[in-house]
């Protein structure tokens, strides 16, 4: 099943390499990965989505927690975390189909970023499920290219306090 980990790490060179290496050597594939600095610029936040069974997920968390650069790792899979993902899609578009595409964009609160002679580029944002629905709606028009950020996750207010407050040093 898809697992969602949030790792709070030092913001310094090599952290991504160590984290990825922990997965690579055990043959665990990383489904998506986002990283950016937190409110404290010396600290980074990773959201890592991967497909692992329970035992492998426990092992992955434990191996990540052993890394010196890592402050904390949370497996938030079971906490129905808040997820946001952004997709850029190039869709085949002719004069006849443009109007339908604009309607779909409107329905999904997506942006039309560019319109060309035979294609359009749309940007959609939302939960991974909403993006899947957006793509399903667009698929009949002919999807030509996709770029996707991967999920950024945060736990719900009721589920946990800020993961960043756990950072001591």
């Amino acid at each position: 099943m898809l697992r969602i980990f949030i790792a709070i790490t030092d913001n310094e060179p090599g952290v991504l390499d160590r984290l990825a290496s922990t997965f690579r050597r055990r043959g665990f594939n990383i489904h998506s990965l986002t990283v950016s600095p937190t409110l404290d610029p010396a600290v980074s936040r990773f959201t890592l989505v991967t497909d692992l069974d329970d035992k492998a997920a426990r092992a992955a968390k434990s191996f990540l927690e052993r890394l010196v650069n890592i402050h904390s790792v949370a497996d938030v899979t079971g906490t129905t975390p808040l997820l946001r993902d952004t997709v850029l899609l190039r869709v085949a578009a002719t004069g006849a189909t443009q109007a339908g595409l604009f309607q779909i964009a409107n329905l999904f609160q997506a942006e039309v970023l560019d319109v060309g002679a035979d294609s359009m580029v749309l940007a959609g944002s939302g939960s991974p499920e909403r993006i899947e629905a957006f793509m399903t709606a667009l698929r009949p028009y002919g999807l030509l290219e996709m770029g996707r950020t991967g999920a950024v996750a945060m736990q719900r207010c009721a589920a946990a306090a800020s993961l960043e407050t756990a950072v001591s040093f």
């Binding site: 060179p13 090599g14 390499d17 160590r18 290496s21 050597r25 890394l67 010196v68 650069n69």
Partner: peptide, 14 residues
Amino acid sequence: VTGVTIPITKHNYL
């Protein structure tokens, strides 16, 4: 060498 030795050290530094 820091890249080479990531899996065989507890930690390393450049």
